[in-house]
């Protein structure tokens, strides 16, 4: 009897959830789940395709690279020389971060949803644990510097990526990945937002990694540092010997 009650309770709880997932109101897919960094790698792009049923809902997509701790140093004059003087540490900052949003006019409720879900560059600092003992105004200088550094590197874009609608529902977006983009696991978060509320959230993964010769060199250096060094030395010894034997001939 008890088991029956539990089963009924389960059905009541889970059926609506299943039903809502099956409505297929939002779907996003990446064209490829990996970017190969080869010897000749000169940048690539992440292509996304998606479909939303409700044409009034806003689509937002965030692509973020592996997270690392970042220190921003500010130079100051010490005895005539410019040296790294003040710093701010930002814990677990994405090393690549770009976003796309289908709405140009961002109102208060949309902005709130963006901040809550870490969409947009300003939202990065809201959740990121930056170093204490610094006033808000001081930390702002370092936040701006961090953004500018990443803009210059090409791993953050100053403007959001455009979401192109092919018809009312079907869309695509393309995120450039410059050669300076770090390797590692990337996360793609796709949101469907309506009336300032996220109604759908899909997370996908993508790997940016060195392949072929590069991967071999990278892994050898990481795992077999000693043998790797010996190979470097051998190459150097051999080419040095080659030069001297060429020089003797004439």
């Amino acid at each position: 009897m008890n088991i029956f009650k539990v089963l009924v309770a389960c059905l009541i709880i889970f059926v609506p959830f299943n039903a809502s997932a099956k409505t297929d109101s939002f779907a996003v897919s990446i064209a490829s789940d990996h970017i190969d960094v080869t010897v000749g790698f000169n940048g690539s792009s992440i292509e996304l395709f998606g479909d939303r049923r409700d044409k009034n809902a806003v689509v937002a997509i965030v692509v973020e690279g592996p997270k690392k701790n970042v220190t921003i140093w500010q130079k100051a004059r010490v005895m005539g020389t410019w040296v790294n003087r003040h710093y701010a540490k930002f814990k677990r900052m994405p090393t690549y971060y770009n976003y796309a949003i289908s709405e140009e006019n961002i109102d208060k409720s949309l902005l709130k949803a963006m901040m809550e879900n870490a969409i947009g560059h300003d939202a990065l600092f809201d959740r990121v644990n930056s170093s204490k003992n610094k006033k808000r105004a001081d930390i702002k200088i370092f936040q701006d510097a961090l953004l500018k550094k990443n803009y210059d590197l090409g791993v953050f874009f100053e403007k959001p990526v455009e979401i192109k609608f092919i018809n009312n529902n079907f869309f695509r977006a393309s995120f450039d990945v410059p050669p300076s983009a770090p390797t590692g696991e990337y996360k793609i978060h796709s949101f469907l937002i309506k009336n300032g509320k996220v109604i759908e959230h899909i997370t996908d993964g993508l790997k940016v990694e060195q392949v072929g010769l590069n991967a071999f060199i990278y892994k050898s250096a990481q795992n077999y540092g000693f043998i790797y060094a010996l190979v470097c030395i051998f190459i150097a010894l051999f080419s040095g010997w080659l030069v001297s034997s060429l020089r003797v001939k004439p």
Partner: peptide, 25 residues
Amino acid sequence: ATIMHATVSNSVDILLAVFLISGGV
């Protein structure tokens, strides 16, 4: 020093070395 750099700080780039050396030759 090369062995130390490769094992301690992992900062020896063999590809960079090859191009530098071949240019140098």
